[in-house]
Design a protein around this nucleic acid. Structure first.
Lengths: 187, 187
DNA sequence: GTTTTTCCATACGGTAGGGTATTGAAACGC
DNA sequence: GCGTTTCAATACCCTACCGTATGGAAAAAC
């Protein structure tokens, strides 16, 4: 019997494992002992790296905020003249079905933010950053500031809202609908 | 000391109490013993009216579905010629800040639907009904079926998405933005 | 090689809560 | 009045977890 080599976990391994759990089961589903078993250790390890469960939750939220802010800046980066394409790209990336995990985390954290003020503040930061990024793109297209803001709000509300809807029983041409809506938001 | 008169609870009292809890704490926050204490009884009563916790959850979901379907039909009812006003009214009612509890329940149930297939089917029913109700209004305004569907999807995605956003740190004229978006969706 | 630090296992106490079994009391049928 | 039905209280058992205390092994420091 080979003895498995000792691979020490760090806070980061716990945080990323926790994010997976949050995506699957929501913030309430994040349990220290369950996560420990998933990582192949016991909670003795957990309480070495974290003060308590709340410490992990805060770390998850911080990691999420930093990641989301970095991501939206990257996705909305556009050379001069490519702003419209960048907007289309942003909608595609954020509303895409391939982004199931990201959407699940968004929903879980926003749900949790209803009960937790600190989380609500983090969501506010992320949303403000996102809204500002697309506002900049709309401004570059020559729109007024008020219209750039309104279109940004519509863009994100659509993206988040669509990800929460279940259109399975509503017969439609999904691709065509997507295209129509994207035009409506950006032009 | 007056002895409080015995007021027998029925399933409905439990269900409505449960809906309040779900709005406040999500589906995971719905606990038999906690709800019993809130209703001033013990869980001995609960297990008289319900087989188990899942039985209550199912009852909550059924009640929610029936209520939501009845409500959307009522809100989108329009005399001939008043279809546009009905659309505006629908957006107002569903996106309104005054509807905090309704929004919280929507979010909680949609979150729960990620883990529970039966719930996902119920959400699908509600969404299909809602989409169809506004589609009918758009059709009455003379739009093509494809466009009527696309506008309906945009309408609900916006309403749900906006309720999940935290725009506190994004400075804007909220009323004016709302008006702009409403026009963009309906006209 | 010994000491120290790092990381984890084990064992334990405590609370919350699901579900059952039993008892009890009020209301109802007659 | 008297039995029956309806609804709720009580007492349990059991599981899932949080958090702590302590011991122990591996690695690093020296």
């Amino acid at each position: 019997m080979e003895k498995p080599p000792r691979i020490a976990l760090d806070r980061n391994a716990w945080i990323h494992g926790a994010i997976d759990v949050v995506a699957a089961d929501g913030m309430d589903g994040l349990r220290v002992e369950v996560l420990a078993k998933k990582l192949g250790v016991t909670k003795g390890s957990f309480y070495w790296h974290f003060k308590d469960r709340r410490d992990l939750v805060d770390a998850v939220l911080d990691t999420w905020r930093e990641g989301r802010i970095r991501d939206i800046r990257k996705q909305t980066a556009a050379e001069a003249g490519a702003e419209l394409a960048a907007l289309h790209h942003t909608i595609d990336v954020y509303a895409a079905a391939k982004n199931r995990k990201g959407i699940a985390i968004e929903a879980a954290i926003r749900m949790w933010a209803r009960q937790d003020a600190a989380t609500a503040a983090i969501v506010e930061d992320v949303d403000a950053t996102r809204l500002d990024c697309t506002r900049t793109l709309f401004l570059a297209l020559g729109l007024s500031d008020a219209e750039a803001k309104a279109r940004s709000v519509l863009l994100y509300a659509y993206v988040f809202g669509f990800s929460m809807m279940q259109c399975g029983k509503f017969p439609m041409d999904a691709a065509r609908t997507r295209r129509w809506i994207m035009e409506r938001i950006t032009q």
